[in-house]
Simulated scan of single mutants.
Amino acid sequence: MSKKKSPNTKKIVIFASGSGTNAENIIKYFQNSKNIEVVAVLSNRRSAGALKRAHDLNVKALLFDKEALYQTNDVLNVLKDMNPDIIVLAGFLWLFPSNIIQEFPDKIINIHPALLPKYGGKGMYGSRVHETVIEDKEKESGITIHYVNEKYDEGNTIFQATTGIENHDTAESLAAKIHDLEYRHFPEVIQQLLEKNN
């Protein structure tokens, strides 16, 4: 049973395309908050674990298709009804449409599993990022939390955290280090942004 929220509760909507571990982490982080709440998780993939995780945690889970996002205003209208204070992309792989970006200026953020501006852009997500970082023999990697604009991974940076890369690291071991950074920092940054905008 969740605690009663205040009438001024800040609302988070999460978009996710994959397993949803970041979405779950964010939902759990704010579960006992009296004034911040994840109100919905939206996904473009029926098989996305994010939908099941949201459902299991009693958070509204919504599936949509390309047409609803890009051609009709269905997703935009759902968001207008919810009126979120922040929209969080947590492993959402499609380019976000400009009509939603314009409707929610400076309220849409994304997390990227590398230190932007390096290793960003179309097609650079998940294991591809870590494999390329290892191939390039980088000494460090990390996460970038940034505002979303009309181009992949090019919005203004809000926060970065780094982790060292050892000679024995693989794409898999680097991914584990990056996940740790995501779980530790993403909810905190979301909270800071919401509290700053009070």
Rank of each mutant, 00 (worst) to 15 (best):
D85Y: 03
S6Q: 10
I100F: 11
D180T: 13
S47K: 13
H112G: 05
I100Y: 10
P7G: 07
Q160H: 07
T21W: 03
H130N: 09
A48T: 04
L193M: 14
T21A: 12
K139W: 07
K4G: 09
F64S: 07
K139S: 14
L95P: 03
Q191E: 15
D85C: 04
N73K: 15
E188C: 01
I100Q: 10
F186M: 13
N25F: 05
V133T: 05
N35I: 10
S47R: 08
D74H: 14
W94F: 06
H179F: 13
H168F: 13
K3C: 11
E103L: 06
I178G: 00
L194S: 02
F159W: 06
N73F: 10
E182T: 01
T170L: 05
I87Q: 02
T144D: 01
D65Q: 09
R184L: 15
G164D: 13
D106N: 15
I12F: 09
R46L: 13
Q160W: 04
N32Q: 15
E166I: 03
T163V: 15
I165R: 05
V59G: 02
V13D: 03
Y70A: 08
A161T: 02
E195A: 08
I108E: 01
N73C: 10
L194K: 00
E166R: 11
L76Y: 13
G120T: 01
L181R: 01
N156Y: 06
L57V: 10
I109M: 01
K10M: 11
G155D: 01
E188R: 03
I109C: 00
V59M: 06
L42C: 11
I165A: 06
V78M: 14
D56F: 06
V129E: 00
V129Q: 02
N110H: 07
E24A: 15
V148N: 00
K11T: 10
